[in-house]
Amino acid sequence: MWRSIASNGITFLIVALFLMAGLILWGQREYTAQGPTETSVCVRVPSGGTMSEVSRDLEAQGVITNGTVFRLGADYTDKTQRLKAGSFLVPESASMAEIVDIVTRGGASTCGTEVVYRIGINRMQVVVRELDPGTGRYVENAAFVPGEDEVPETYTQVRAQGDTRYRVALAEGVTSWQVIEELKDVEVLSGEVAEVPPEGSLAPDSYEVRVGDERSRLVEQMQQRQQTILSAAWEGRVDGLPLASPEEVLILASIIEKETGTPDERGVVASVFVNRLERGMRLQTDPTVIYGITQGEGILGRGLRQSELRAATPWNTYVIEGLPPTPIANPGRASIEAAVNPDDTDFVFFVARTLDPKDGHNFAVTLDEHNRNVAAYRRLEAERN
Rank of each mutant, 00 (worst) to 15 (best):
R217G: 07
Q223Y: 09
M222Y: 07
Q221D: 13
E220W: 02
Q227E: 14
A203R: 11
G191Y: 00
R217W: 06
R225D: 11
G212K: 03
E208N: 15
E248F: 01
S216A: 06
V193E: 00
I229P: 09
E199N: 07
V193Q: 00
V219S: 02
G191D: 00
L230R: 10
P242L: 06
Q227R: 15
P198H: 13
E192Q: 04
Q223V: 14
G212A: 04
G236E: 14
S206D: 08
D213A: 01
P246D: 06
E187L: 04
E220V: 05
S231C: 12
I229H: 10
E208I: 15
L218D: 01
Q227C: 11
V238M: 14
S216P: 01
P198V: 12
E208W: 14
Q221M: 11
R217I: 08
R225A: 10
V196M: 06
V196S: 06
Q226C: 09
V238T: 14
D213Q: 01
Q226S: 12
R215F: 00
S231P: 12
Y207S: 02
R210C: 11
W234R: 05
K184W: 03
M222D: 08
R210M: 10
A232Y: 09
R215D: 00
L243E: 02
V238G: 12
E199K: 06
Q227Y: 10
V193T: 00
L218E: 01
S216F: 01
E247C: 05
E235A: 11
S206Y: 08
R217F: 07
V219N: 03
V249Y: 07
D239N: 15
V219L: 04
V186M: 05
Y207T: 02
V186D: 04
R237L: 05
P242H: 06
A233D: 04
L230N: 09
R215E: 00
E208A: 15
A232Q: 13
S206K: 08
L241W: 03
G191S: 00
S190T: 05
I229E: 09
V193Y: 00
S201N: 11
